[in-house]
Structure formats: C-alpha cells, structure tokens
C-alpha cells in the first residue's frame, strides 16, 4: 500500500460516514448522564460551599476562580443545569452545549478542590467537551431547522472516533501508570491485594463497611494475581476496542466487567462506565432510537385502530 493510500485509509477511519442520528443519540445519552450526575451532586456541592476556605486546594480551572460565595455557586448550578437540558434537547446547542461543558468543567473541578481528587468524573468530562464541540444536534433535536434529517456524513463520524480514542486512551494510561509505578511486580498481585485491604481499612476508620467482597477475598493471594494480570491486560489492551467486530464487543465487555469487579472488591463505583454510557460511541446506537421510534409508531397505530372501532 502506498503512503498516500495509508493516509487515505487513516482519514477514512477517522471520519467515517455515519448518520447524524448516531452522533445525536450519543449526545442524548452523554448529556442525560451528565445532567443527572450534576443534579445528584448538587447537595454535595452545596455542603462544600460551607467548608472552611482554608481547605480549598484547587484543581484544574477552579484554580483561576478560587473560592466563591454559596450564592454564586447556586446560581452557577442553575445556569449550567439549564444549559445542559437545552443542549440535551438540542435547543440553541451552539451556545448551550459549550456553556454546559465549561460550566460543568468548573463545577466538577470545584467539587474536586477540597482535598480529594476523585477519578470517577474525568472520562465523563472529556466526553461532554467533545459532544459540546461536535455537530451533535443535527438530529433528535427540538431546534428549528430543515424538517429532514441531514444525510450521513463524515462530520458526524469524527466526534465518535474522538470519543472512542479518548476512552481507550484513558484506560491505556491507567494501565501504563501501573506498570511504570509498580513495574512487573504489580502483575504479581500483592500490590493490588495491599491496596484493596488498605482501602477496606481506611473505609472502616470512617465508619463505612463497604467492599465486603474485597475483605472476603483478602486471604486468597492467588485471586489478586489473576485480577492484577487481567486489569493490566484489559487496560493496556484497551485500544483493541477500536477494532470492529467481535474484538470490540469483547473488549468493551471486559472493560465494563473490570468496573463491576472494582465496585464489588473495592466498593468504588465508576458510575459513568458502569452505566454503559461511556461506551455508547462504540456502537450503532441510532438503531435503539429507530427501534424505539418503530415501537412508538406501532403503539400509536394500535391506539388509532382501537379508537376507530
């Protein structure tokens, strides 16, 4: 294959021609999750607004803004949630989606700026930023525009590829971090075992009885050897999920299964991947929308038929 052909092949892969509905369905899934997550975090954000400001250790964009008054925080939450809902239904998406992304970035940075940086929101935040910058509201949208859905195009494909690349990158980085910090020793499982038991102990010392499976497994060193190898293989091998077909299905299932395992053994729930939304860009999700549409249309026809009798 000539270099030009290789470049063309890569270009075709990076911008596949897909229906606008596929990207739009991903937008809906990601933004539904983000809005629900933000709404669920509101009580925690408001509690943090009353913490001693000396405990503020800013991360990310929260550094440039600093500690804000509780009233400012409440106002920001309201504006960001409104922008999120507008972006979700595709209203004024060129403004609402970026406003939601920037606002969410600040709110989640602010929430993580009180001494503990959680890693459960990173991927969600990256996905929201990508969706906000993509033409993701050309279908499944309430905005005014041409009544017909635009034809399939590469401009709906590149955001999906970017979501996929970012997703597998985060897992690969996590896997490489384990090998860089712990070397091949990490694969032996003892480091993982010590981390799990340490986590169980820490939770117990603040009155939390979580991770019963981890406590139960802790005497069995061999289980942790298997889990350590599986974790590194699944994480470092995450780019295999970019391949089409069974390999993709297998790897997505393995990544999801890893999160189920982490939840069971350590009591740490990565809600975004556990919900499956983190992986929607890997599939032809518009088929679910089409199926829902057909079912809904069928039900409407039945109602009309019954009413006509």
């Amino acid at each position: 294959m000539s270099p030009l052909a290789v470049v063309r092949h890569i270009d075709r892969w990076l911008s596949p021609v897909v229906p606008a509905r596929r990207l739009a369905a991903v937008r809906v899934a990601v933004l539904v999750f983000a809005c629900v997550w933000l709404a669920a975090m509101v009580p925690d954000l408001l509690v943090r607004a009353r913490l001693d400001p000396t405990r503020f250790t800013p991360v990310g964009v929260a550094e440039s803004v600093g500690v804000v008054a509780p009233s400012t925080l409440v106002l920001t939450i309201v504006v960001v949630l409104a922008a999120g809902l507008a972006a979700l239904v595709g209203l004024a998406d060129r403004v609402s989606a970026p406003v939601f992304a920037v606002g969410l970035l600040w709110l989640l940075s602010y929430r993580n700026s009180w001494g503990h940086l959680s890693h459960v929101e990173h991927l969600l935040m990256l996905h929201v930023c990508i969706v906000a910058l993509a033409p993701a509201a050309d279908a499944l949208s309430l905005r005014r525009g041409p009544p017909r859905e635009p034809v399939s195009h590469g401009r709906y494909g590149w955001p999906l590829r970017l979501l996929m690349l970012v997703t597998v990158s985060t897992y690969a980085i996590a896997g490489i971090a384990k090998l860089r910090a712990g070397g091949m020793t990490w694969l032996g499982g003892e480091t993982l075992r010590l981390h799990v038991v340490h986590e169980v102990l820490r939770m117990r010392l603040v009155g939390e009885q979580t991770a019963a499976v981890g406590r139960w497994l802790s005497p069995h060193a061999w289980v942790f050897s298997g889990m350590a190898v599986a974790t590194v293989v699944v994480e470092v091998g995450a780019p295999l999920a970019l391949l089409a077909g069974r390999m993709r299905t297998l790897w997505i299932a393995a990544l999801w299964g890893m999160h189920v395992g982490i939840w069971a053994v350590m009591g740490i729930g990565f809600a975004y991947p556990l919900s499956g939304v983190a992986f929607v860009a890997f599939g032809a999700v518009e088929r679910i929308v089409d199926l829902a549409g057909r079912l809904s249309a069928g039900r409407s026809r039945n109602i009309v038929r019954r009413a006509g009798r």
Partner: peptide, 14 residues
C-alpha cells in the same frame, strides 16, 4: 489533575 489525569490509582507500591 482534572480533567486530564495520570490515572495513578492503585499503581504505586504499597
């Protein structure tokens, strides 16, 4: 950091 991370969770020796 956030949202860019080194994902150091449980990697270091204990």
């Amino acid at each position: 950091g956030f949202p860019l991370s080194t994902y150091p969770m449980f990697g270091y020796a204990r």
